[in-house]
């Protein structure tokens, strides 16, 4: 690993200022991706900016309407252990307990997972399903983008030079809604999704009022499939309807073959995992009064 300097700004303006003055800076939250990449030479840095001391990046805020704001550096375990997150966002608490293992969850954050922008990121399909938005700060001010627009290519995203992710915002869940993320991994833990699926589903008057579905590890970026969710709107939540939506997600996927799975196997799994995620989201929606 090449030598670098270290800075730990205590405020957002300080961090933004540092970023602006240091073109070869890298941001450090949990470090569970960054330090591996720096050590292997896949990434370089002249300075590493530790964002964990910035209060805004370290907060979990549940608003009165139950919308949720998660600071970009909040480590996963705090979401898993957070009673309100467990109560209102069980799928989120769950996915936070699946990223890496226990030790990794002591450090890794959903913000880092998003900024690392891996096609296989576990949290991103769920964030997309939950209609999350990413709050970004830079020297030109702040902006907010939907999570599904954030990643642009493997390991790339729309953060401009000098910008950083501040938080993730999840709108209040609708009544009778449920969400789920399921992934397929050959081991039971410590593995990268061969295919992952995030789903959310809202019921009203016995039919599906809204649904969103996104997949991981099947395209250059986490893949939002609006057509799959849209196909369910107005339908009764029958197995056939869920299966048809899953097939639409499968059709949208463009997986590759690599050491984690062949394209054919991934394509097969798309339909299975999408359907299972929809089924679990449905169960949760039915239980959520």
């Amino acid at each position: 690993m090449k030598a670098f300097d270290y800075a730990a700004p205590a405020s957002l303006p300080e961090a933004v200022g540092l970023l602006a003055s240091q073109p070869a800076a890298r941001l450090l939250a949990g470090g569970t991706d960054l330090l591996v990449q720096l050590r292997s030479g896949r990434k370089q840095a002249d300075v590493v900016i530790d964002v964990k001391k910035i209060p805004e990046l370290n907060e979990i805020t549940l608003a009165a309407d139950h919308s949720l704001t998660i600071g970009a550096a909040v480590p996963c375990y705090r979401l898993t252990d957070h009673p309100a997150v467990q109560a209102h966002y069980p799928a989120l608490a769950e996915v936070a307990s699946w990223i890496g293992g226990t030790q990794i969850q002591g450090r890794a954050s959903l913000g880092g997972n998003l900024c690392n922008s891996a096609p296989s990121a576990d949290s991103i399909p769920l964030l997309i399903a939950l209609s999350a938005s990413a709050h970004i700060a830079g020297s030109a001010g702040r902006r907010s983008v939907p999570v599904e627009a954030f990643c642009t290519a493997p390991g790339r995203n729309l953060l401009a030079p000098g910008e950083l992710l501040v938080s993730l915002h999840i709108p209040a869940p609708a009544p009778h809604s449920g969400a789920a993320y399921l992934r397929f991994i050959p081991r039971n833990e410590m593995d990268i999704a061969v295919v992952g699926a995030g789903a959310s589903l809202t019921l009203a008057n016995g039919v599906i009022a809204a649904a969103r579905l996104a997949l991981s590890s099947v395209a250059p970026t986490p893949l939002f499939v609006p057509a799959a969710g849209d196909s369910l709107v107005g339908q009764a939540p029958t197995p056939a309807a869920l299966e048809a939506a899953a097939r639409l997600a499968q059709a949208a996927a463009s997986p590759i073959s690599d050491m984690r799975g062949s394209a054919a196997y991934r394509r097969h799994l798309c339909a299975v995992m999408a359907r299972r995620a929809l089924e679990l989201a449905l169960t949760r929606a039915q239980e959520n009064h």
């Binding site: 470090g31 569970t32 050590r39 375990y77 002591g106």
Partner: peptide, 23 residues
């Protein structure tokens, strides 16, 4: 050296971490 074996686990503050992935 990349957080996947846990041999370097230490407690940092009130959480366990893989110390190879902490500066």
């Amino acid at each position: 050296g990349d957080g996947n074996c846990g041999s370097c686990t230490v407690k940092l503050g009130d959480r366990i971490v893989t110390s190879c992935l902490v500066l």
